[in-house]
Design a protein around this nucleic acid. Structure first.
Lengths: 188, 188
DNA sequence: GTTCAATCTTGACGGTGATAAGATTGTCGA
DNA sequence: TCGACAATCTTATCACCGTCAAGATTGAAC
């Protein structure tokens, strides 16, 4: 029989993976390093060779979730060509990401670790949306106007994500058209 | 010298008050029932005569914060008469509430306990805003349109509150006009 | 004044994050 | 090939946490 090796080999990665899974299922509140370690079959002190402490571990997961979200947005960008569509598709991708993983929203924004200034999803959104806005309005917009529209659109999308967590508020069958209609309320 | 009485007399209230204070200063993450009990000068098991467990205690604080927010909105309503102003003042009150107590935002929405369907601030906002919208448009709006506008406005305001937590994104000197300008981006 | 329920203390339990000390192993240069 | 070294893991332990059971203290009601 194959006894398990003393060195796991990929413990850091498996910890993040299992942590992600746990948060997705039960939320971060009841997550413990010890339970995670046990479920992997490793001692309770093992993770501390890879993460300074629990907070650093959760930071690593935050980074992972943020990357996933950025990728989802990136895919939305690549999947469409027209500028008007682009803004809507970006918003949809953002809302749907959290609609499909409601506990990620709590995890991400409940820890107060997201600094908008250094938040890749917002950076990607800003660049893409700014470009689209400029093309749509043929460069007639001032910087201040663009900034205002960007913040308004992003805030709307981010707020909608919170709504998406509550059942029944957004019609899930028509999530696409719902979001499109709402985004159109902002005069872009 | 006056020895402290065996019965505190108002422990439940003081616990909520101290808990609120602690969350406002340090956030909910490091809050412990024991520390709170000690700071009040009572044994660690004392609070459990008033709260079933820690979660129930935090629920009580949630209720308190929610009430405070509702009152802030109510004051904003009473302080202005014109309908156009009303929508903006409501939004401002909401954003400023969390701008002044950033950790409340994390506490409230990081626990996943806020059910929009039973969230007094949203109910108040909905009633007031719906009334204002109807008067402004002389009853020409369909129910679907009103619903759409309500959700859009609320989502925008709620998203802005998240922004307000990040320094520098909203110009704090001109918070009033900033919010007004952003809300005007929604075609109300 | 007795009784009773509410309130508080003491003491304990299992679970948690974290650290120190030591065991095990892969790696890399001599 | 071998020996050192660093990385990784275990064991044992610590202080802290939420929570409960048992009992002490008290105000209020009869």
């Amino acid at each position: 029989m194959a006894t398990k090796p003393y060195h796991h080999g990929n413990l850091k990665h498996e910890f993040i993976e299992k942590g992600l899974e746990y948060i997705d299922e039960h939320g971060v509140e009841s997550l413990s390093m010890r339970k995670l370690a046990e479920s992997i079959g490793v001692s309770s002190a093992a993770p501390y060779a890879h993460f300074k402490n629990k907070e650093a571990f959760l930071d690593a997961i935050t980074e992972y979730v943020t990357e996933s979200l950025t990728e989802a947005l990136q895919e939305a960008v690549e999947a469409c060509t027209r500028n008007q569509e682009l803004l809507i598709e970006l918003g949809k991708a953002y809302v749907i990401f959290f609609y499909e993983n409601p506990l990620y929203y709590q995890f991400l924004f409940g820890r107060g670790k997201v600094d908008i200034h250094d938040y890749p999803p917002f950076q990607l959104y800003s660049e893409v949306a700014e470009q689209a806005l400029k093309e749509m309005h043929k460069k007639r917009l001032t910087k201040a106007t663009i900034r205002k529209k960007l913040i308004a659109m992003w805030a709307l999308v981010h707020g909608l994500a919170q709504f998406a967590l509550t059942d029944g508020l957004l019609d899930t069958d028509k999530l696409d058209s719902e979001i499109a209609a709402l985004l159109c309320a902002v005069d872009v």
